[in-house]
Design a protein around this nucleic acid. Structure first.
Length: 237
RNA sequence: AAAUCCUACCGCCU
């Protein structure tokens, strides 16, 4: 029988899905594939290599083999689906998780918000927002940023701005997400107002701004901004 | 056994 530490080392040093499948196969032969921490390690590795819909299917199959999935296992698979072709599955897994009395954490919600954003499902997004309020995750910047992004992606600029205004503390991503939300809906005046108020900027801030102008056909403005960024650097003010 | 968190574009995969 392979020793615990050797299997762990194999899984930790695993570099490709192909290699993972071989180790998984060996573990199955020994009846160890559902044992912890192996099952979770296999799952998280498979989910970290997701680059096509084949990979997410494989990760999901592994998830189904995990006997009593923990919050970590759920987060890993929910995250995988949130950026997949079928983000709706994230939401289904979330419901399943609640039914199994696994309590979502501050990492679960950004994945759910992302799923709603990609689906452009404003109603579901608002529902997730409601749950976040009830569960008291309103102080988490990552959670709030992901909600703002969801509203922006669902073309609810008022909703996005409300989250932004009511946030207890904002970081660079909060500002960038707000600029991007205005850019997406073509409100270049408001976009610029927010951009000009930013306490700091990075290359993402500038590219959201430029993108907003380009989408509205304001090419001269886009070029000017681009040249300013090149001349002074994206972090300058 | 402590791994999984937010924004633009690009790239990778289909």
């Amino acid at each position: 029988l392979p020793s615990h530490s050797i299997v762990c080392r194999l899984l930790e040093n695993c570099r490709s899905i192909c290699e993972l499948k071989r180790i998984h196969g060996v573990l199955m032969v020994f009846g160890l594939s559902k044992e912890q921490p192996f099952a979770t390690k296999i799952l998280s590795f498979s989910a970290s290599c997701i680059s096509s819909s084949r990979d997410i299917n494989y990760a999901h199959k592994i998830f189904l083999q995990v006997p009593f999935p923990s919050i970590f296992d759920y987060n890993v698979i929910i995250r995988g689906y949130s950026s997949s072709k079928n983000p709706y599955k994230s939401l289904r897994l979330f419901v399943q998780m609640l039914r199994n009395d696994v309590v979502p954490d501050h990492l679960t919600y950004p994945f759910l918000a992302k799923a709603c954003a990609r689906l452009m499902e404003l109603k579901l997004g608002r529902c997730i927002h409601g749950i976040i309020l009830r569960k008291g995750f309103v102080l988490d910047r990552f959670v709030l940023n992901s909600l703002m992004h969801m509203y922006g992606s669902c073309s609810d600029i008022v909703g996005a701005r409300k989250v932004f205004d009511e946030m207890p503390a904002r970081n660079l991503v909060s500002w960038n997400t707000m600029v991007d939300a205005y850019a997406k809906c073509g409100k270049v005046i408001s976009m610029r107002e927010v951009f000009d108020l930013m306490p700091e900027r990075d290359v993402v801030s500038w590219s959201c701004l430029i993108d907003g102008y380009v989408k509205e056909g304001e090419y001269m403005e886009a070029m000017e901004v681009f040249e300013r960024m090149i001349a002074f650097g994206p972090n300058a003010n």
